[in-house]
Amino acid sequence: MADIHPTASVAEGAVIGDGCRIGPGCVIGPEVVLEDNVELIAHVIVEGRTRLGAGVRVFPFATIGMAPQDLKYKNEPTGCVIGAGTLVREGATIHRASVGGSGITTVGANCMLMAVAHVAHDCVVGDGVILANNVMLGGHVHVDAGAFIGGGAAVHQTVRIGRLAMVSGLAGVTNDIPPFGYVFGLPARLVGFNKIGLLRRGASRDQLRTLRDVNNLLFKEPGEFSAKLAEAESRYGADPLVAEIIAFVRNPARRRQLVRPGRMAAPELGGVEEENGDGS
């Protein structure tokens, strides 16, 4: 029930679902599972203990499940999972996990990884995430659902990026970004929140005003951060979006500091702040 080009190499033991299309020059390893209707257009390599969810589409010269770029890795039986409906464009690389993590590199459902994006070992990428061209995620990075990372941005290992956060192109991210945050620059600085992304997902104008007030309280007003966080929880904690930010900040699994506040550096990009920042 699968359409496999004669020049493709599918190892014995690989599981190929119904309706899969495997194009010319593709190489599929013996422990790979392709769920139904996966399409590998041409010259795609899928190796290791890798599972591609239903309807995943992979463009030429992408590699998925190859060994991690980690000198500690000694061919341990780690894996890689790609969620249903995800699109992987030309030359993208997604490595299987190394040691010292969960053992699985995960990319969620309905994501888009544009050309030459890189997802390193042990990353966890949530549903609906977009990685633009040449984005680089270091090892053990967590990107929550709906986040957008602009072209050429580099994210340091172990960084956590909250839900619906937005990272500008060419940003250098070395610290954690709270949910809905918008960061810009090298090093990346928090310059607002993802207003347009929130509106598209049903946030009300009142919620946006609340997030603006919380953003100002936490990142612009003077004072000790822990005290400001407690005040934000007391005044606005009933709002689910604010509660999500507070839970992210207090997550004991975080290993890096929060991104620092800043301002847009380039006047010609002011429209980006207006559309995606706090509008102030």
Rank of each mutant, 00 (worst) to 15 (best):
D18Q: 13
G19R: 00
R21Q: 14
G23H: 08
P24E: 12
P24F: 06
G25M: 07
C26P: 00
C26E: 12
V27M: 12
V33A: 10
E35H: 12
E35G: 04
I45Q: 15
E47I: 00
G48F: 06
R51M: 07
L52F: 02
G53N: 10
A54N: 06
G55T: 05
G55I: 04
P60K: 12
G65F: 02
M66W: 00
P68K: 05
L71A: 13
K72F: 01
K74S: 12
N75H: 14
E76Y: 11
T78D: 11
A84R: 10
G85P: 00
T86I: 05
T86C: 04
L87A: 12
V88W: 05
T93K: 07
R96I: 01
G100N: 08
G100Y: 07
I104F: 12
T106W: 13
V107K: 06
N110W: 06
N110Q: 12
N110F: 14
M112Y: 02
M114R: 05
H118Y: 10
V124H: 14
D127K: 01
G128F: 05
V129W: 09
I130R: 04
L131H: 09
N133H: 14
N134I: 02
G138C: 09
G138P: 00
G139D: 04
H142R: 15
V143E: 08
D144L: 11
D144W: 03
I149S: 02
I149H: 03
G151V: 02
A153E: 03
H156Q: 13
H156I: 00
V159T: 13
I161Q: 06
I161G: 07
L164R: 11
A165H: 06
M166D: 08
A171Q: 03
D176H: 03
D176Q: 02
I177E: 07
P179L: 13
Y182C: 10
V183P: 03
F184C: 11
F184D: 13
G185F: 04
F193L: 09
N194F: 07
K195T: 15
G197Y: 06
L198K: 09
L199S: 13
Q207I: 01
L208R: 02
T210F: 04
L211S: 09
D213W: 00
V214W: 04
N215E: 10
L217W: 03
P222K: 06
F225I: 06
S226H: 07
L229H: 01
A230N: 10
E231C: 04
A232Q: 01
S234H: 10
R235K: 15
Y236F: 15
G237T: 03
D239S: 09
D239T: 02
P240M: 06
V242T: 09
V242I: 07
V242Y: 11
V242G: 12
E244F: 01
I246E: 06
A247H: 02
F248C: 09
V249F: 09
R250P: 03
R250I: 04
R256H: 14
R256A: 10
R260K: 15
R260D: 05
M264C: 12
A265P: 00
P267Y: 10
E268N: 14
L269A: 12
V272Q: 13
V272N: 11
E273T: 11
E274V: 07
E275P: 00
E275F: 05
N276M: 15
G277N: 10
G277Q: 09
G279C: 07
S280I: 06
